[in-house]
Simulated assay, not measured.
Amino acid sequence: MKNKMYYQLAGSFTLLFFVALCYILRFYPDTLTGFDRGIISVVHSLSPGADSFFIWLTKFGNPVSVVILTIVFLGLFWFNRQKLTALWFGINIVGICGILNPVIKQFFKRPRPTILPHLVEEHSYSFPSGHAVTSMILFGTLIFVMPLFFKNTSLRLVAQIVLGLLILGIGVSRIYVGVHYPSDVLGGFLLGISWLLFSFPYYREKKLIYDMKQIGRK
Rank of each mutant, 00 (worst) to 15 (best):
Y7G: 15
K105Q: 09
V19G: 13
P117F: 01
M146H: 03
F108M: 01
K218C: 04
M136V: 09
F108W: 03
R156I: 00
D36R: 11
G171Y: 01
P102M: 04
G34I: 11
L191H: 08
F54Q: 04
L168H: 03
I175D: 06
R110P: 11
P201E: 06
S194F: 02
R26C: 12
Y23V: 15
F54W: 15
R26W: 15
L165T: 05
M146R: 00
P147L: 00
W195V: 03
Y203M: 10
D211Y: 06
R110D: 12
F198V: 09
P48V: 11
S126H: 00
F149A: 14
S47E: 06
Q82K: 15
N101D: 10
F53H: 12
F139I: 03
A10R: 02
T153Y: 01
H118Y: 06
N62L: 06
G130Y: 06
Y176E: 07
L196A: 02
G49W: 02
L100C: 04
R204P: 00
Y6M: 14
L76M: 10
P29D: 01
R110W: 10
V66Y: 13
V19C: 15
G216L: 07
L15Q: 05
P147I: 00
T31V: 09
D51C: 05
G171T: 03
A50C: 15
M5T: 15
P182I: 04
V67E: 09
P63N: 13
V72W: 10
G75T: 02
F18R: 12
T134N: 11
Y28R: 14
F77S: 00
F89L: 13
A10F: 12
S135N: 03
N92C: 13
Q160G: 04
Y28G: 04
D184E: 04
I161S: 02
V103R: 08
I175T: 05
Y7L: 11
T70M: 14
I71C: 15
Y7Q: 03
S41F: 03
N62T: 09
T85W: 02
S183M: 11
L191V: 09
R204F: 02
F17W: 07
I170H: 13
T14I: 02
